[in-house]
Computed example of a mutant assay.
Amino acid sequence: MVFGMATKKITVTIPEELLDEIRTEAAERGLSAYVAEALRFKRDRDRLVEMVDWLEEEYGPVAEDERAAAREELDELDAEHKRRRTAGEAA
């Protein structure tokens, strides 16, 4: 939680299984901080999607080879994330 920032309590309904997973991951930071971070990430992603749309309107669509390269890089990042998480759980 960011100190000095105004906060507001809300009620949100999410699937129980997801909540169990999140509570495990958010243990040190706390559930509220975890959810706030996730919402910021989603907001930022939505803004990036909007910016990509604007850029494609101005400069044309992204070429398929560029999309494939970006997907490959994301797959590598996902694999690294999974490797680190698995290594952390084994320790």
Rank of each mutant, 00 (worst) to 15 (best):
E72Y: 04
D46C: 06
D78K: 15
D44G: 07
S32P: 04
A63D: 15
P61Y: 06
L19N: 13
R45V: 12
A79W: 09
E56L: 06
A6S: 06
P61I: 03
R43W: 12
K82G: 05
G88M: 12
T7P: 00
I14S: 05
V35K: 10
S32Y: 02
L77M: 10
E80K: 12
L39W: 08
K9G: 00
H81F: 03
R83V: 01
I14L: 05
R83Q: 07
L18G: 13
F3P: 07
D44F: 05
A87V: 03
T11Y: 01
V52H: 01
D75G: 12
A33G: 09
Y34A: 05
M51N: 05
E89G: 04
E16S: 15
T24I: 15
I22S: 03
E21S: 14
Y59M: 05
A69V: 06
A36I: 08
E76H: 04
K9A: 01
R23G: 11
A26S: 11
F3N: 08
A68P: 08
E72M: 09
E37Y: 08
E21D: 00
M5E: 14
R84D: 06
R29T: 06
E56R: 10
A79V: 01
G60K: 03
V52E: 01
V62H: 00
F41E: 14
E56M: 10
E72C: 00
A26P: 01
T11R: 13
E28V: 02
R71D: 11
V12N: 06
L31V: 03
Y34G: 01
T86S: 01
A68N: 02
L31Q: 13
D20R: 15
M51E: 14
E89D: 11
M1K: 05
K9R: 14
E64P: 01
E16T: 08
R23F: 14
M51P: 05
M1W: 04
Y34D: 04
R83S: 06
R43T: 09
A36Q: 14
E57V: 02
A87T: 02
